[in-house]
Design a protein around this nucleic acid. Structure first.
Lengths: 195, 195
DNA sequence: CGCGACGTTGATTTGCCTCAACGATTGTGG
DNA sequence: CCACAATCGTTGAGGCAAATCAACGTCGCG
């Protein structure tokens, strides 16, 4: 039981690790604390680390030509929020990742990830499975975006992620679901009247 | 050079295989031919295979409560179209995958994929990389959906996938981009007048 | 040939955006 | 510790992008 327990528990859902392997893995990790509003990823900079959220909440978003923000990803404890394109291909990032609260992150550098595959090859398996599950869940989001109205997407979000609904600010949820904060406000208002 | 060359070339972009390994891999593959309008995936049935398109075109789509079709994925030679959720988790599928043309597919069964990981562990790496790239590209689609207008999405699609624009029927493209065929028709009309 | 699949066009409607103004809350410097 | 600003959410009026509905032309195919 140590600072890295959350990640080790997560990984253990996909592969079994010996005590030695756990120690080796932990040796490649680092804990970092970030303050609310601090960035872990910024456009133009190559994303050097995966950040597993041990405590706190993060948000990934882009800013379009009209200055509108669009939330690409949201996450709390147990999730990773990252510009995968940038990290995987080691190219400059195209969007921001920002802390919504003071947070504790467990970071694995790109270099150490490559080292990890050499030292303990079964981690390829672990990250294959998580990447596949991740792809599947993003595909779900595409389906929601193209097939549901704003109100339906809000309903789905509210029932799928009640915890996020409480903790994440409205503007982040609205831009995640693809509409404006004003419209979100109207949806909520409408719901209240119904019940 | 044989029937499986397209897949082997694809895989070789990510990992190096010896001749023995190529032979072993090929032993786990099968070629199937499907006719236009034939399904390779259907709701309620667990998706048992990955299908690499050697020749032809495929389309994944769902039908919503109002009977409207929504295209989730499109693919031609060199792509895979699948219900990843169903395949990865071995759960019943939630949408259809259908041939848009008479097609030749190279299939790898779920069982054989697991076997492959035991026989040649570096395939974990290959599928990790493809899954990560897949996740990154679906994430791009989410960004387009939430940040661009219908017309802009059509423009982006047309310039990114000129080949698909020629080969894929309009109704499939429209429902892929998240609008109606009528509206797509109007966008095209407008473009013609401009030039 | 005749039917079904596919695309087009026009009239009307609507879901959601834009803009603007206004409380409530949080944070910050004097 | 208060004043003032910034952040965040709400409300309303008006506008536009895209949907809906309906009718029609065209092609390919059984």
């Amino acid at each position: 039981m140590n600072e890295f327990t959350p990640v080790i528990d997560f990984v253990s859902r996909f592969i079994n690790l010996t005590d030695d392997e756990v120690e080796c893995f932990a040796g490649l990790l680092r804990t970092v604390k970030v303050k609310k509003r601090q960035f872990t990823v910024q456009p133009e900079f190559v994303c050097q680390h995966m950040h597993f959220i041990a405590e706190g909440a993060m948000r990934g978003y882009m800013v379009d030509g009209d200055g509108n923000e669009h939330t690409i990803a949201l996450g709390i404890e147990g999730w990773c929020v990252n510009d995968y394109n940038s990290y995987v291909l080691q190219e400059p990032a195209t969007f921001f990742v920002e802390a919504l609260e003071d947070s504790t992150l467990i970071q694995l550098s790109y270099k150490n990830e490559q080292l990890l595959y050499q030292l303990i090859p079964k981690f390829e398996r672990c990250f294959r499975i998580t990447a596949q599950m991740n792809a599947a869940s993003i595909q779900q989001r595409v389906i929601s975006n193209i097939s549901m109205t704003a109100e339906e997407r809000y309903e789905e979000f509210a029932s799928s992620y009640p915890k996020l609904l409480q903790r994440i600010p409205q503007y982040a949820i609205a831009s995640y679901l693809g509409f404006t904060t004003e419209y979100l406000s109207k949806i909520r208002n409408k719901k209240l009247k119904k019940s």
